[in-house]
Design a protein around this nucleic acid. Structure first.
Lengths: 196, 196
DNA sequence: TTGCCTAGTTGGCACTGCCAACATTATTCG
DNA sequence: CGAATAATGTTGGCAGTGCCAACTAGGCAA
C-alpha cells in the first residue's frame, strides 16, 4: 500500500489502459483483490483519479479485463506444459495447479461470477482454455478445432478447478494433514464417465 | 434495495446478532454479495448504522459468520440426502449441487478465501461437512468419527465443488450446449485414485 | 439506591466508485 | 497548413462505505 512507486509522466500517458492492467496484476498478487481500487491504481500510474474511466467503463469491467488476461496467462502455461509426448494431461494438471498457487488472487478473480455478467468478448481466453483442455483430452493438437467431448472435459475441469480452489482458499481444515496437492493435480485426469 | 421492510423496535433489540445473519442471507440471495453492507442491514433491522459492531467486530467477521451458517445449512441438506440405502453418495452429490444453485451468492461466499483468514471457530460446519462426506464414502454412519480416507474425499469434494462453481459462476461458455449438470453431479463420486 | 455492564446512538473521518464540466493534446481532413 | 474534432486527462463533488470515539439508555446485581 505504501512502498509502491508512483510514476510521473506527460499529460498523455501513452498506454494507460495496458499499464493499469499490469499494475492491477501486481496489486492483486501483493495485496489481494479487496485492496484493489481504481483510484490507487491511478495514483500508482501517476495519473488523476478518474483517468482510468477513459479506458474502462467501470470497475467491474476493469476486473473482467484482468480476469481475461489471467486466462491468457494460464492458457500460455498450459500450452507450454502440454508438449508432445504422452502424459501431457497430467502435466497440464500440475501446471494448472502451479498457476493458481502462484497467482491465487488472480485465479479467484478468474473464477468469480464476474465473467458471468460480461459479454463474450471478455471470455475469449477462458474459452480457449476450455477448448485446449478438451482437445488435449481427445488427443487433438489443433487448437482451433471445436471440442469433441465436452462432458468429460467439464468433469475434468471441475476436478482441477475445485482442487485448486480448495487449496488456495484454505478450505481444507488446517489442523489435518494436508493432502499431496501436486499428486492430486497430476492424477486429476481420470475420466469419471469412462469408469461408471 | 428499496422494497425491503424496515423494522421498528425497542432500544434493546433483543437478538440483533441473529437477526443480522437472517437479513444477510436474504440480501445475499436477492442482491448478491457486492450489495451487502452492514449499514444497510442495520437500517433494515431498524437500528443505527453502527449497532452491528456490537455483535461483529468487523464486516469480514460478519461475512465469515454467514459462511459458517451456510455450511450448517449445507450439512443439513447433505445429511438429509444421505438416508440409509446404497447410492447415498450420488444423492448427496445432487443435493450439494441443488444447494449451491439455490443459494449461489452464499455458496460463493462459503468458498471464498474468507475462512482462510479466520480462526477455526468459524470453520465448525465446514469441517463437519467434510467429515460427513468422508464418512459416507467409507460407509461409516457415525458422524463423530474422524475421517479415514482424506485423499479420496478431497478428490471427490474437489470435483463437486468445482462443478458447482463452474455452473453458478457461468464459467462454462454460454454459447455451447450446457452439460447435464445434474447427471454430472450424481456421478461425481467415482474415485480417481481407485482407477489409476 | 447505586453503580456497572451491555447494547445502541450520534458525529465524523478517510476512503471508494463514478458523474459533470472543463482542459489539453493528437489526429484527421478541407 | 490550419481548424475542427476526437481522444485522453484534470478538478470538484456527491453518495455511499467501513469503522472509530464519545456519549447514552436500560437491565441487573450488590
Amino acid at each position: 500500500m505504501s512502498d509502491i512507486k508512483i510514476e510521473k509522466n506527460a499529460y498523455h500517458h501513452g498506454n494507460l489502459g495496458a499499464r493499469l492492467i499490469e499494475l492491477g496484476l501486481e496489486v492483486l498478487e501483493i495485496e489481494g483483490a479487496e485492496a484493489l481500487s481504481l483510484r490507487e491504481l491511478a495514483k500508482m500510474a501517476g495519473v488523476s483519479k478518474t483517468a482510468p474511466y477513459r479506458h474502462f467503463e467501470n470497475k467491474e469491467i476493469f476486473l473482467a479485463s484482468l480476469a481475461d488476461e489471467g486466462f491468457r496467462l494460464l492458457y500460455k502455461d498450459l500450452l507450454n506444459a502440454r508438449g508432445n509426448e504422452p502424459g501431457s494431461i497430467g502435466r497440464m494438471g500440475k501446471a494448472y495447479m502451479a498457476f493458481a498457487v502462484s497467482h491465487p488472487a488472480l485465479y479467484r478473480l478468474m473464477s468469480s461470477s464476474l465473467l458471468n455478467r460480461m459479454p463474450d468478448s471478455f471470455k475469449v481466453w477462458a474459452r480457449k482454455t476450455l477448448v485446449l483442455l478438451s482437445n488435449t483430452l481427445d488427443g487433438v493438437q489443433n487448437d482451433e478445432n471445436l471440442p469433441l467431448n465436452l462432458h468429460d472435459t467439464t468433469a475434468i475441469w471441475a476436478y482441477i478447478h475445485g482442487l485448486v480452489l480448495i487449496r488456495i482458499d484454505g478450505l481444507y481444515p488446517q489442523d489435518l494433514n494436508q493432502p499431496d496437492w501436486e499428486q492430486l493435480a497430476g492424477t486429476a485426469f481420470v475420466l469419471p464417465s469412462k469408469t461408471s
